[in-house]
């Protein structure tokens, strides 16, 4: 690690962002081409494996009385299914596999990122931006396909007084296009900030006088991060459902 090279003076060494560097797994170079197998590849593959282990291997027995693994898989299924049904509406159930894919990827990537020495794929804007743009495009295209020009009624607040409506339309339009940005930055920002803060406390742990305090702080932050890992996946998914609801039922 780069921090080892700097750590020999024993002073304060902060490289909280080093954990986010994308680097090739093999060859030792730093050039990252399109198809280079990097730590991103590894940790995304692990997320896929984790999803497979939980939802496919865990439910292998198809037991009437579920085992622990199967219970968790069923809980995850029902959690997202109910969310789609309640928030986005009953007709949004056909989007359930897409939303479940998003949720499972984010929650697994977040939790895998909490392992020591791991790489957190969801802390990168490149990743969350693709996820957010996918949601944005899906919602917009669905809206136009289902409702045509009527989908623009989403921006025309018919319950407001007529003179206010153009102003509100501009505000609504801006907020609509800000959605993917906030959607993307919220997830990456939360995950990145938490991990960086833990790394900063870890830097303080090198000083003997404050190291007990730093370790307590790391422990507390870690507990908080476990919550954040789940809550951010939940927030991302429920916002997807909210946006989808707008696309399916555009009237205010």
């Amino acid at each position: 690690m780069a921090s080892d090279a700097h750590g020999d003076e024993g002073g304060l060494v902060f490289h909280p962002m080093d954990q986010f560097i994308v680097k090739p797994l093999f060859g030792g170079g730093t050039d990252v081409g399109l198809f280079t197998i990097t730590n991103v590849t590894l940790w995304m593959a692990l997320a896929v494996v984790a999803v497979f282990a939980l939802l496919v291997v865990g439910t292998k027995s198809r037991a009437m009385i579920p085992s622990r693994g199967q219970s968790i898989a069923e809980m995850a299924y029902l959690f997202i299914y109910k969310m789609v049904e309640d928030v986005a509406g009953k007709d949004a159930v056909k989007f359930f596999p897409y939303i479940m894919t998003l949720f499972m990827f984010i929650v697994m990537a977040n939790f895998l990122g909490l392992l020591p020495m791991s790489f957190t794929t969801t802390s990168h804007f490149a990743v969350t931006a693709v996820l957010a743009l996918a949601v944005f495009l899906t919602v917009t295209i669905t809206g136009f396909v289902l409702h045509g020009a009527k989908f623009l009624g989403l921006f025309w607040v018919s319950s407001a007084p007529l003179p206010l409506r153009p102003i509100l339309a501009i505000i609504e339009l801006i907020s609509y296009f800000v959605r993917p940005v906030s959607h993307c930055i919220r997830l990456a920002g939360n995950i990145m900030a938490g991990h960086a803060v833990i790394k900063v406390f870890a830097g303080f742990a090198a000083i003997a006088a404050v190291s007990p305090l730093a370790i307590v702080a790391i422990t507390a932050m870690y507990g908080l991060e476990v919550l954040v890992a789940f809550i951010q996946a939940y927030v991302f998914t429920i916002l997807t459902c909210v946006y989808l609801h707008d696309a399916l039922h555009p009237s205010h």
């Binding site: 986010f20 990252v32 399109l34 997320a47 896929v48 939802l55 490149a126 996820l131 990456a188």
Partner: peptide, 26 residues
Amino acid sequence: PQLDFATYGNQIFWLVIALVAIFLIL
């Protein structure tokens, strides 16, 4: 490192593969 655009193509490529894999599994 999040703003190092040189790695974006790589991340997006692997992300799409991971998402397609998860989607197919699910």
